[in-house]
Each structure stands twice: as C-alpha cells, then as structure tokens.
C-alpha cells in the first residue's frame, strides 16, 4: 500500500520533471526562432512600430512615476543617514550610483514586466485560445516572426532610452529633494554625480536594459503561446508570465551587476 503510494509520487515527480524539461526545450527553440526571424523586421515594420509605442511612449508615465518617487525616497533616507556622519555632500554620489547601477534599470524592468509583459501574455494567450495563432500557421505565416519578433526588437530598442529616462528623472528628483529638504546646493549635488561616475557604472546599468527586454518579452510571449483552457487559462498563463519574468529579472539584475563590477 505505502510502497505503491510512494511509487505513484515518484512517478508523478518523474513525469512533471520530464514535462518541465520538455517545456524548457520548447522555450529554447521558441527563443531561437524569435532571434533568427529578426531579418524579417522590415516586413513586420508596422507591428514593430505598434509595439515600440506600447513598450515605449505608453510606458513612459509609469516609468517616470516610479523613478521619480524612488529617487526622492532614496534622497530623503540616504541624506538623513549621511547627515549623521556629517557627509551630506556625498549624497549626489551615493544616489547616483544606486540609481544608475541598480534602481533605475530594475524599477523600469519591473514596471515593464507588469505592463508590457502582462499585455503580451494576455494578448497572445487570447490569440492562442481563439485559434488565431493556428490560423497564422495554417495560412502560411510564421507566428513567431509576426507576433514575437516585433515585440522583442521593440523592447530591445526602447528599453535603453527608457532606462536613461528613468535614471535621469530619478536623479533629478533626488537633486530637488537634496536642495529643498536637505538644503544642499545643487552645484554640490551634481558635482558629486557626474565627474565621479565611471564607464563601468553606465555599463552595469545599461547592459541590464537589453537583458530585461529579452527576459520580459520572451517569457511573457511564450506563456501566451502555450495558453490552454479558455479564458481562465489566459489569466493563468498571464500571471505565470509576470511572476516568472519578474523573478528572472531580479536574478539577472544581480548577476549582471556582479559580472560587470568584478570584470571591469
């Protein structure tokens, strides 16, 4: 009795492990296909522009709001802390480093995972369950080239300027807090920012943008493509896309920082 029960458990574990690896394999081929169809970008230029607008201009408000508030918050807290050590003039440097290397790109990534990723997952999932993706294949169009590649390239293109905007608006709001809350002269603040930043700091921050673009687009699109089970299934696969891509984002964030800072 008990042996057959544990036998079934092991069986099930075996099966889900097998299913997991099959899915990873599928995801791998899906991702390769999204990259090797990039030469078809001209043909799907309209789709690219639509997606660039959705990922870029339409995402601008949420990126601005989050980076401005986190910049302000950081300046208040770090300013108070530095004041205790009598090192308030270092505020510019410390906020600049954390925003450009870590918080600017990470926040932008998380916001886009929620915004762009969820939209991809839901839209493609709805297309999957209404057989529109099958229809593309049935009538001779590669659905990955038509639907995923433009999303991927759009994200790759717009995430870099979005990061720059997130960095700058975060820093700028930190500078305002420094001036009006901590009474630090703006000249002193900015002087502690730019001359002190080195190439490495920008590489760390801006390398994250394309890495995040790839993670968010491919994970959310893949989850849309494998949606099954009606409307509820689309909901499930959309959530899964966001959870997985946000998790991977945090991991990738750590490793990009570690690799670049150790090797440059």
């Amino acid at each position: 009795m008990s042996t057959s029960f544990s036998g079934t458990l092991a069986d099930n574990a075996n099966r889900s492990l097998k299913e997991f690896f099959l899915m990873m394999q599928e995801f791998f081929f899906f991702s390769i296909r999204a990259f090797i169809t990039i030469p078809k970008l001209r043909r799907y230029w309209r789709d690219f522009l639509d997606q660039a607008k959705i990922a870029g201009t339409d995402s601008l408000p949420i990126v601005l709001v989050s980076s401005i508030s986190i910049g302000a918050l950081l300046a208040v807290e770090v300013g108070n802390l530095l004041e205790d050590f009598g090192a308030k003039t270092m505020l510019g440097r410390s906020t600049a480093l954390s925003i450009i290397r870590e918080l600017g790109p990470l926040l932008m990534g998380l916001m886009l995972s929620a915004r762009y990723g969820s939209r991809n997952g839901a839209e493609l999932g709805a297309m999957k369950i209404s057989e529109q993706i099958d229809a593309l294949r049935a009538f001779g169009t590669d659905p990955i080239a038509k639907l995923v590649m433009p999303r991927l390239t759009a994200a790759l293109v717009v995430f870099v300027p979005l990061t720059a905007i997130a960095d700058f608006s975060g820093l700028y709001s930190a500078a305002l807090i420094a001036e009006h809350y901590h009474k630090i002269d703006p000249g002193i603040f900015w002087n502690a920012v730019f001359p002190r930043l080195v190439l490495k700091d920008f590489v760390v921050g801006f390398l994250k943008a394309p890495v995040f673009a790839v993670i968010i687009t491919l994970v959310s699109s893949f989850n849309g493509f494998i949606a099954t089970g009606g409307t509820a299934g689309v909901g499930r696969s959309t959530i899964k896309g966001i959870v997985v891509s946000s998790g991977l984002l945090l991991i990738a964030n750590f490793y990009v920082s570690k690799l670049v800072l150790e090797n440059m």
Partner: peptide, 9 residues
C-alpha cells in the same frame, strides 16, 4: 483552406 470553429478572425 480552413475555417476554424470560432472563426479565428
């Protein structure tokens, strides 16, 4: 040609 059940337009 195929006509899907839900049309897939």
């Amino acid at each position: 040609g195929i006509v899907f059940q839900g049309n897939a337009l």
